[in-house]
Computed example of a mutant assay.
Amino acid sequence: MSALLQVEDLRVEFPRGGRAAAAVDGVSFELAAGECLAIVGESGSGKSITCQALMRLVPEPGRIASGRVLFEGEDLLQRSESELRRVRGGEIAMVFQDPSSTLNPVFTVGHQLIDVIRTHWRCSRGKARERAQEVLAQVGFPDPAARMKAYPGELSGGLKQRISIALALACKPRVVICDEATTNLDVSIQAQIVELLRRLKDELGFSIVFITHDIGLTPHIADRILVLYAGHAVEEGPVRQVLDSPGHPYTVGLLHAAPSLSSERGVALPTIPGTVPPLGELPPGAPFVSRCPVAVAGECDTAEPGWTAAGPGHRVACHRFAHDGTKGTTWVR
């Protein structure tokens, strides 16, 4: 598959203690048409900042220091602000974590949808209303005309998130970025939203960048996984290869910490010791070295690892894996 979106050596910096500290450091990945890429990691891993950078929405005082974001071959980082306004929401749309903070409480659902559609399509209000009702039906509302009259405050969290998805899909984007879009929902509603996104992706043909801290969600929606740690990509590959044969100790830790049907009731889940280092305080060497149970002394603490192939389309940035060729599940005790 040819790449619809290519991210090359992206670096995002924030000022910290009088110097520039990298929140995202050298991240690269590709997204094909009709594909879902899950970006996985703990809070502070750089997931959201990476995706904000794709649309040049990094909050100040942060800045995109280097790299390229190629959408259909054109670098979005080189486009003017007016050109980017047409891309945002029109070609690349975003579904945020908390719909309560993104939906305007004083305007009806219909008003907000029509406003977005007319901004990008320059169509009549009647045509925009038709499209608004069409997209509400697509996200599962049985009576779109009635739902157009509702205010966000009248809706549950799950219904608000469906409205957010409708807003993202209103102008038929090529890429939809879901930034922790299921985090604030209970488990049953979370499953409904994931299934809705998967079905709409298959029916409408758009691509998804699905940001999540829950690696257990990825097989239900993603084709491939990119694992980030402290702003660095540490593993990437097809979803089943990564989940069945993880190569990086951090990926293994995320998998062990995820609850499953086989988890024993009343028994605490394993955790990864420590926390992601604060911005600008990453130790020398491999990013994960301070928390890694299988670090190679004299190497992991001195040099950052390069990529090692782990299978077709599967790669791992880990000194231990490069030496042993051993899957991470045999290392962590």
Rank of each mutant, 00 (worst) to 15 (best):
A65C: 06
F71P: 05
S66R: 15
F29K: 03
P59S: 05
E72H: 11
E72I: 10
A32Y: 10
G41T: 00
F29P: 10
E30T: 15
V69P: 10
A65R: 14
S43N: 12
L54A: 05
L54G: 02
R68D: 03
E42S: 06
L37E: 08
M55E: 10
E60W: 03
F29L: 13
R63I: 00
S45R: 02
L70Q: 05
A53N: 03
C51F: 04
A32S: 15
L70H: 05
G73W: 11
V40R: 04
A33I: 00
F29D: 08
V40H: 09
C51W: 02
A53D: 05
L70D: 03
C51G: 07
A33N: 12
M55P: 00
C36N: 08
E74S: 14
F29W: 14
C51R: 03
V69C: 02
R63T: 15
S43C: 10
C36D: 01
E30W: 04
L31G: 13
R56Q: 14
T50D: 05
A38E: 07
T50S: 14
G62K: 00
E72C: 06
A53R: 05
E35W: 09
A32H: 14
V58F: 09
F71T: 13
M55L: 15
L54C: 08
V69G: 01
M55A: 13
P61F: 12
Q52V: 05
S66T: 12
G62T: 00
L31V: 15
A32M: 09
E35V: 08
A32K: 13
G34I: 02
I64C: 01
G44P: 09
T50Q: 11
S66G: 15
